[in-house]
Design a protein around this nucleic acid. Structure first.
Lengths: 202, 202
DNA sequence: AAAATGTTTGACCATGTGGTCGGGATCACG
DNA sequence: CGTGATCCCGACCACATGGTCAAACATTTT
């Protein structure tokens, strides 16, 4: 069917997806334009549509690749590990993703804000079942007295909220902190470790 | 100059702003169209532009009204009150706003995601100075040993993140919880009270 | 070098979009 | 009533946008 892509194909597909990520993550699907993406990628608009059949297809490709990356840190939560250590590790991995891939975080946020028209099935399927599985693990830890008693679902939501906030609301965080108060992500790391340590200790 | 608006003016301006809030909050400024807003408001497009000079003006009107509402709960944080009670009260007021005004929350989120092109001055001015003031109050409580030692800025950020998450990511929260697990906001209320009680106690 | 394949783009099209305009419908008020 | 002000909208405009196409250009293969 589709044999190896040429070097040019690999380079241009990559350039397009990078450019599209930047534009979609800032303006959402409907607010983004092909001209903008083409300019950002250094290609002509018809050339975009040589590599992808439509605007929709570019967006779908981005989202498809995104979900796996996004769930990986939670998937790594190990039921056999030391509970507080595992949960703190998850928090820090997620915060590092916000620091290193802020555009991916914003792309996801935009999709959800718009009502998740394109990834609702994945939310109700893959995402839900992974969260169900890990929530059970956490509930087990709580029942065994290895962490404090807590609603595991809202614990997971709170980790998402706290870590993604530093990517999605980056400009607000920086506007409030000003220039003098150090890197937001370093402060966030210390704060979140303190917060979850205090909350989880049995 | 502009004497009392007639009853019709009040009704239509209101209908337009309500409709625009719904549309802008879902699609962002660029993704929203006047036709959509007009349809939602039950008016013709030219009639929209009879009441507001441009799409931009509608959006600005919404944002201008928003910031005050948005800051009110933080402004109500009383330096003379009992610290934990004050902070828990702030959390619950903010969560109630997410429940009762989710569109406003999403409108704000969209604006920040897009880099805050229209309210950056307010963020660096009004918002920053209010946060600076309240952070000082919280730091004072911590120094006096009335709450646990904590970074007051990130404490405020965490309250924003945790409460707004339930409005902005509502569809995701509901997709993961499914139908059987009760109202997200009730669960969130219990969870957040527990979380902050544990974290703040000296 | 020529043929075959893969890549690029200028010109173009249909539709969508923000915004205007002139005139008609409706209202407030004497 | 009547009449002036307010309110409403069909038709229209200029431009942006997603997408097409044929022809030119480049690269690989034989």
């Amino acid at each position: 069917m589709s044999p190896e892509p040429t070097r040019i194909q690999r380079r241009n597909r990559r350039a397009i997806l990078d450019a599209a990520l930047a534009v979609f993550s800032q303006h959402g699907f409907r607010g983004a334009t092909l001209d903008q993406i083409a300019a950002e990628a250094g290609l002509s608009k018809p050339n975009l549509l040589y590599y992808f059949p439509s605007k929709e297809a570019i967006h779908e490709t981005l989202l498809a690749g995104l979900l796996e990356t996004w769930l990986a840190p939670l998937r790594a939560l190990d039921a056999e590990g030391e509970p507080v250590e595992e949960l703190l590790g998850y928090v820090r991995r997620k915060l590092a993703m916000s620091r290193d891939f802020p555009c991916e975080s914003r792309l996801f946020a935009n999709e959800i804000l718009q009502g998740a028209p394109r990834i609702m099935p994945a939310l109700e399927g893959e995402l839900k079942s992974l969260v169900d599985e890990k929530a059970e693990v956490i509930a087990g830890w709580a029942a065994a007295g290895r962490i404090a008693d807590i609603d595991p679902y809202h614990l997971i939501f709170s980790i998402w909220a706290l870590t993604q906030h530093y990517a999605d609301f980056d400009v607000q965080v920086r506007a409030v902190l000003g220039t003098g108060r150090g890197d937001p992500f370093e402060g966030a790391d210390r704060y979140l470790v303190t917060l979850f340590t205090r909350m989880l200790r049995p």
